[in-house]
Design a protein around this nucleic acid. Structure first.
Lengths: 140, 140
DNA sequence: GCGCCAGTTGCAACTGGTTCGCAACTATTG
DNA sequence: CAATAGTTGCGAACCAGTTGCAACTGGCGC
């Protein structure tokens, strides 16, 4: 199923005139398998560990292309290197646990609506947005 | 009045064990006078233009200290160099006009409340957050 | 199947924003 | 005013990310 999804993706890429090279396939695999939000260096390490010969430069280039194809999303948190995640069909925001570094995803329609409303009030329309909550476990 | 405010600030810094040097005073002035959201290089240029002898390295160091004192806020938008603004008493979020690069400030209590609520639901408390709307003028 | 060639890759050198080591200064306190 | 801990300027270093270029390779066309 995950494999099937990957094949569908590869077809889509090919259709968009993007060659599916050994390196790109490897990265797609690594990203699909990741349940966390790794940065470029980490993805590179995992791809290499998986036996794929890929250079870091290519990882960066590939991430950019995959993003352009809408296959993955780039997350830029506070000063840390950019992280990446498989593009989910549904939009979601992020909550970053400052102690553990864990990234938790969430959505809230009410917030989405309010944002659009606020922008509209000022004569703007939202192209995209970023909402990050930097949090700590509340101890009580 | 702006001058008075600056003096109060300088006293506060001194009280916190932070020396008020010629360079820092100059930067405080430049930041207080700015109605936009300049980056370090721009602040440096303005300070120099105002006749203060300051190095870029010191600008960076000073910005960091002023931020630590809660006097200014650091804004990190999409890939651009960090921008800075005088810390306002009231928290606000930002809307970035993708065409003009203009930064518009706004607040909305409803969003603030919802954020706190969502975090609480998951057992977290918000340390700080970031909400940025990347927008374009809606033409109709 | 096979060759062609635009698209891709690896490497190393480069960039741009930001930080750091260190010796020379300087705001404060006594 | 002297002592001294905090600051500064400089250039070198850093770090994530990008790029030029020569060598490679998917995937279409035959």
């Amino acid at each position: 199923m995950s494999k099937e999804r990957r094949n569908r993706l590869e077809q889509a890429l090919r259709g968009a005139g993007v060659r599916v090279t050994r390196q790109r396939a490897a990265l797609l695999g690594v990203i699909a398998a990741a349940s966390d939000h790794p940065d470029a260096a980490e993805l590179h390490a995992r791809a290499v560990a998986a036996g794929a010969g890929v250079s870091l430069a290519t990882v960066y280039r590939t991430l950019t292309t995959l993003q352009a194809q809408g296959v993955i999303d780039k997350l830029e948190f506070q000063g840390e290197p950019a992280r990446w995640e498989a593009a989910d069909d549904a939009h979601h925001d992020h909550m970053i646990d400052l102690d553990s570094g864990a990234v938790i995803e969430f959505t809230d329609d009410r917030i989405e609506r309010l944002q659009a409303e606020i922008a509209a009030e000022m004569g703007y329309e939202i192209v995209h947005h970023r909402l990050e909550l930097y949090v700590r476990k509340s101890r009580d």
